[in-house]
C-alpha cells in the first residue's frame, strides 16, 4: 500500500461491487491466501480444534451456545476460547473445526456482511448471509482436504419472516436449513440428543437457554474434547439470544447461575 493510500475506485467492468471478498481479491489477494493441499501429505503437527456448538430455534428467535474448549490432539489448547460470534446485528455464527482458520473465516464473514450493508445501504437477507458463508466454507475446500476442516453453524432472526432460522454446513460448503435445531463438533451427538429430548415447538427463549446449557454439559460429560462449566476458574459456555431486538450475549453471571443450578439439581453426584 502507498504511503498515502488513494481511494480504491474502479473503472467499469472491474468494480468488485458490494462484496468485500471480491474487493480483497482485486486489491490485496495476499491477505486471502489459503493453505494449499499437498497431495499425499498429512500435517506434521497438531492444530487447535474447536468442539461443541449448537443453535436452537425458539419462540421469537434463536438461542446459540458453545463450550469454551479447544483441543490439540489429546491436550487442551485453550480453555477459554470463544467459538460463538455475532455475525451482524441479527445473526450469529458458531464454529467447529480448525480454530485458526475458523476464526479468520468469521472475521472475514463479519466484514463481508457489514461491508455489503454499508455499500448497498441495506442489510442482506438472512438467506443471503447464509449463502455467503456457504461460499466461504467452499473456498476452504483445499485446506479441508488436508484435514483442516471448518464447519460453521449459522443462525439468526429473519426479519422478513419474523422468526428464527438455523443453518448448518458441511466441509464442501453445503448449506442445510435445519427445521428446529442443530449442533456441531465432536460433542454434537450428545448435545443433539439432549436437545431432541427436550425441544418442542414454541419453547421460550428462556427454556432454550436452559436446554443449551444442559446439552453442552451432557456433551462435556461424554466427550473429552468438550469443556464443561469450570467453577474453579469461572469459565462458562457462551450463550446468545437472537430475536427481533438483535444479537445479545447472555451475562456470564447468568450462565454461571444456571450452571450452578444444574449442578445442584439434576447433575448432582454425576451418575455414569
Amino acid at each position: 500500500m502507498n504511503e498515502t493510500p488513494l481511494l480504491p475506485i474502479f473503472s467499469e467492468g472491474t468494480d468488485p461491487g458490494p462484496s468485500f471478498l471480491n474487493l480483497l481479491r482485486r486489491v490485496a489477494p495476499d491477505s486471502l491466501q489459503m493453505p494449499q493441499a499437498i497431495p499425499g501429505q498429512t500435517l506434521p503437527f497438531e492444530l487447535a480444534h474447536g468442539t461443541t456448538v449448537l443453535a436452537i430455534r425458539c419462540e421469537g428467535g434463536v438461542v446459540m451456545a458453545g463450550d469454551r474448549r479447544a483441543t490439540s490432539g489429546n491436550s487442551i489448547a485453550n480453555r477459554r476460547i470463544e467459538k460463538l460470534f455475532a455475525a451482524d446485528e441479527y445473526s450469529g455464527v458458531a464454529i467447529a473445526g480448525t480454530a485458526g482458520l475458523a476464526i479468520e473465516m468469521v472475521r472475514l464473514f463479519q466484514v463481508q456482511l457489514e461491508h455489503y450493508e454499508k455499500i448497498e445501504g441495506a442489510a442482506l437477507s438472512l438467506e443471503g448471509k447464509a449463502n455467503q458463508l456457504s461460499q466461504m466454507v467452499r473456498a476452504n475446500l483445499p485446506a479441508a482436504m488436508q484435514g483442516l476442516v471448518v464447519v460453521p453453524l449459522f443462525a439468526g432472526f429473519d426479519k422478513r419472516r419474523d422468526r428464527g432460522r438455523v443453518f448448518s454446513y458441511d466441509a464442501v460448503g453445503g448449506k442445510y436449513e435445519e427445521a428446529d435445531f442443530s449442533a456441531n463438533g465432536s460433542g454434537a451427538v450428545h448435545a443433539r440428543n439432549w436437545i431432541k429430548a427436550a425441544w418442542s415447538e414454541g419453547i421460550s427463549a428462556d427454556d432454550a437457554i436452559s436446554i443449551s446449557i444442559r446439552s453442552l454439559f451432557a456433551a462435556a460429560d461424554e466427550d473429552t474434547a468438550t469443556g464443561g462449566p469450570d467453577l474453579v476458574r469461572g469459565i462458562y459456555p457462551l450463550v446468545a439470544v437472537i430475536n427481533s431486538e438483535g444479537f445479545k450475549f447472555l451475562d456470564e453471571t447468568d450462565v454461571a447461575a444456571r450452571s450452578q443450578l444444574l449442578l445442584d439439581g439434576p447433575e448432582r453426584g454425576g451418575s455414569a
Binding site: L7, P8, V111, H115, K118
Partner: peptide, 8 residues
C-alpha cells in the same frame, strides 16, 4: 471508495 478503504 471510503467504505472500501476503511474496511480493508
Amino acid at each position: 471508495g471510503g467504505v472500501r478503504l476503511a474496511d480493508m
